[in-house]
């Protein structure tokens, strides 16, 4: 690893000053699980590493009227074990529990994972179906960006220079909504999924009133599949409708071939796992 300067600011204002001072030469670090590996491999070069870990308040998980607020520095393990998350966003507790191994979940943070923007990560599909928003704070001010608009490409996001992701806001879902997350890991359980699907649905008297579906590892970013959602919303729930809707996924994804499978294979698995997720969330099969 090439050497670099290390900064551990005690406030967000101080972190912003460092980012302004060093610009491109600075990299923010949260838990460091992804960044340290990239630094070791020299895939990322940083003259200045700015650690966010000493800034107070960024690890907090709390409830507000607009939803559950999860601090960007909350560790994945915090989310997995938080009673608040279990009560108000059980899907997230379940999804974060499935990321990598407990050792990584003890180090990696919610915000660090999101800005890393690897399309095969587990949380983004779940955050997408929950309509989560991200608070991005810069020196000049702050803005909220829906997760849906945050991921732009492989490892590329809408985060602007000088901005820091400070928290994830997860709107509370109606009590009658059901949610599910499926990940296909034919190699090992702690691997990145070959393909993953999150779905959230609300059914009233046999009719699908709400449907949200998002896929991971199937395109340059995790993405919502509106074609599938529209095919089911307002429709009577049936196996045939689910099968037809799931088939639409094939047209919407653009997986990359890698050692987990060819692009064609992943596209097929995207359809299969979408169907299973839909069946699960609609109470079929």
């Amino acid at each position: 690893m090439r050497d670099f300067s290390y900064h551990a600011p005690a406030s967000l204002a101080e972190a912003h000053s460092l980012l302004a001072q060093y610009g491109d030469a600075a990299r923010l670090m949260a838990g460091g699980t992804a960044l340290t590996v990239m630094l070791k491999q020299s895939l990322v070069q940083a003259d200045h590493l700015v650690s966010l870990q000493r800034i107070p308040g960024l690890r907090r998980i709390h409830l507000q009227s607009d939803g559950l607020h999860i601090g960007a520095l909350a560790r994945l393990r915090d989310v997995e074990t938080s009673p608040l998350v279990k009560e108000h966003a059980p899907l997230l507790a379940e999804v974060y529990r499935q990321v990598a191994t407990v050792r990584i979940r003890n180090q990696a943070t919610v915000g660090g994972g999101i800005v890393h923007a690897d399309p095969a990560q587990d949380p983004p599909p779940a955050l997408l179906v929950l309509d989560a928003r991200l608070r991005l704070v810069s020196r000049a001010g702050q803005r909220e960006v829906p997760v849906r608009e945050f991921f732009l490409d492989y490892y590329e996001t809408a985060l602007r220079p000088g901005e820091v992701l400070t928290e994830v806001i997860v709107p509370l879902q109606t009590k009658h909504a059901r949610a599910i997350y499926l990940r296909y890991t034919p190699r090992t359980q702690d691997d990145y999924p070959t393909v993953s699907v999150a779905a959230l649905a609300r059914v009233e008297r046999g009719v699908c009133r709400e449907m949200r579906v998002a896929l991971g590892a199937a395109a340059p970013t995790a993405l919502r599949i509106t074609a599938v959602e529209e095919a089911l919303r307002g429709k009577r729930v049936s196996q045939a409708a689910v099968r037809r809707a799931a088939a639409l996924v094939a047209e919407q994804v653009s997986p990359l071939e890698d050692f987990r499978g060819s692009a064609d294979y992943k596209r097929d698995m995207a359809v299969v796992f979408t169907r299973r997720a839909l069946e699960g969330v609609l109470g079929l099969g």
Binding site: M38, L43, V44, Q45, A117, D153, Y154, Y155, E156, T157
Partner: peptide
């Protein structure tokens, strides 16, 4: 100079 997100060569 080729970059992919934070990675660059």
């Amino acid at each position: 100079r080729v970059t992919i997100g934070p990675m660059g060569v």
